[in-house]
Amino acid sequence: MRLCVIGNSHVGALKDSVSIVESSGIFSSVTFFAKGSDGMSDLIADTTNYRLVARSGALRRSLELTSGGLSEIDPEAYDIFLIYGLGLYPYFRHNKFVSEQLSDAHLADTFKNTLAHEVLSQLRHVTDKMVVLGHTPMKAAEIEKDQEIDPEYLKNIELMNSHESLLSYKATVISQPLDTICNKRSTKPDFTRGSVRMASGHANDGTQHPDNDLTHMNKAFGQLWWENLFQQLSR
């Protein structure tokens, strides 16, 4: 299977650990298309030629740099798509009592109010192939006494996947590896240490994220993430 990864700066952890994919034999190729922050908002569907194309020079250059020379995304070249990061976070119920109606709107917004949704929507104009969504890693924090995972986390991933706003796109959100989670809703701090900026055409490409960056993960996280993807795809 040929995998296409579309995402933002968080893709860096997956790219750094891509060697595990090559040795897994599950994917015959992995192609990355990434642009930091909300740069992918310039990715649009060309419904004449059935491709995703950049409507800005800056995005076109990032696509070329991250993919190894491709300036657009031709869905025929891939069998499966992974949309990663792009403002998608796991859903958790509000910490105060709210109505069912508001909970439902909140759940829908957790997906629909993101760039991941926008990219998926554009992608669905040009292909109906399988799409998997990986949410932005939960913020890292020092491990406290409580190392449990929030019991709602996996239930909420299922809630997202069964919600009409996602069902209509025939796409599936997968969890972050459970081994990486601590304090119920945080990523273990080891997975942010030494994380490196993805090369996407900026002056600081390849440099380490600052120590106080608790959101960008490292190669070790990426490796676990890939293993988790393999497991989930094999089910």
């Binding site: 976070y89 958790f92 119920r93 509000h94 105060k96 709210v98 508001l102 709107a105 909140h106 917004d109 957790t110 629909k112 109010n113």
Partner: peptide, 16 residues
């Protein structure tokens, strides 16, 4: 002191 759920859209903040 009654904050909206995290990541609720601006439209829904207003509706609710």
């Amino acid at each position: 002191t009654e904050k909206p759920p995290q990541r609720l859209s601006e439209d829904n903040k207003k509706r609710f």
